[in-house]
Nucleic acid binder design. Structure first.
Lengths: 127, 127
DNA sequence: ACAAACATACGAAAAGTTTCGTATGTGCAA
DNA sequence: TTGCACATACGAAACTTTTCGTATGTTTGT
């Protein structure tokens, strides 16, 4: 009886999820290599993934000696969860405030702005 | 010698900052009332504000018996700091991805979309 | 067969965050 | 003046998150 939907990932967990999203199913060793083998010990990654397994954030295939871990939560859903959380905590629920803040921050390229405008247009057409 | 710029606020600290941003300079009691006197003990708020003082997130006026705390960091700067942090951790630095994710989330009203479009136009005119 | 390399499990230290209890001081009203 | 309401200071408990050490088992190359 899986209790409910998995909890929001912690920062360290998010980093590992991002590896799994990008690489697909991976062994502990592969994940460690991806995050930089010198920055974090092997057993640290292992333990982290084991915790994530308990939380339902990942699943694993134990058919091989080196277990293969796979993300159990969507990138899109998790990202929205994180964004919504920040919107709530920092902007009192006003999504547009967050967007405005993000856009007025530097390092948004012209291409990115165009992508956003396209989405706005698409949203308009929906109604 | 203030070391450098204040660190990013933790979630609990952010909640208190939001009260100070909205109310302006406030006593511990006032802050506690604002966050809901029943949810968090008085000394908890007090201690939190004392820690925030050490971190440079707030300043205080001790001329009265009940010290008056004031935010030392801008809402806009702090919010951008938090957004940038999330962009980095969850979207690999791609600000537009975060924006797209935020916008495709429900609960963005037509008014909010208009505000965003206006900003896009303003950004265009800048160059 | 045996040592070296590599894998998991798991307890627990280390570090960070949040909450509160207790000691203590000060102003004020009966 | 005496006691009550209310304030700060501060240590430390309670949690959460992150990191690692150690025990132990399995595979592989010589």
């Amino acid at each position: 009886m899986p209790n409910s939907s998995p909890p929001m990932p912690t920062p360290a967990e998010l980093e590992l999820l991002r590896v799994l999203w990008e690489r697909g199913p991976s062994t502990v060793r592969e994940v460690q290599t991806a995050v930089g083998a010198d920055t974090t010990g092997y057993t640290t990654i292992l333990k982290q993934l084991q915790l994530m397994l308990e939380k339902g954030l990942v699943s694993r295939d134990e058919s091989q000696r080196a277990h293969v871990y796979e993300a159990r939560v969507d990138a899109s859903i998790t990202q929205r969860q994180l964004v919504d959380d920040l919107v709530e905590r920092a902007f009192g629920g006003a999504t547009d405030k967050l967007v405005l803040r993000a856009l007025s921050s530097e390092r948004v390229t012209a291409d990115e702005l165009r992508a956003i405008r396209d989405l706005l247009d698409a949203l308009d057409d929906e109604d």
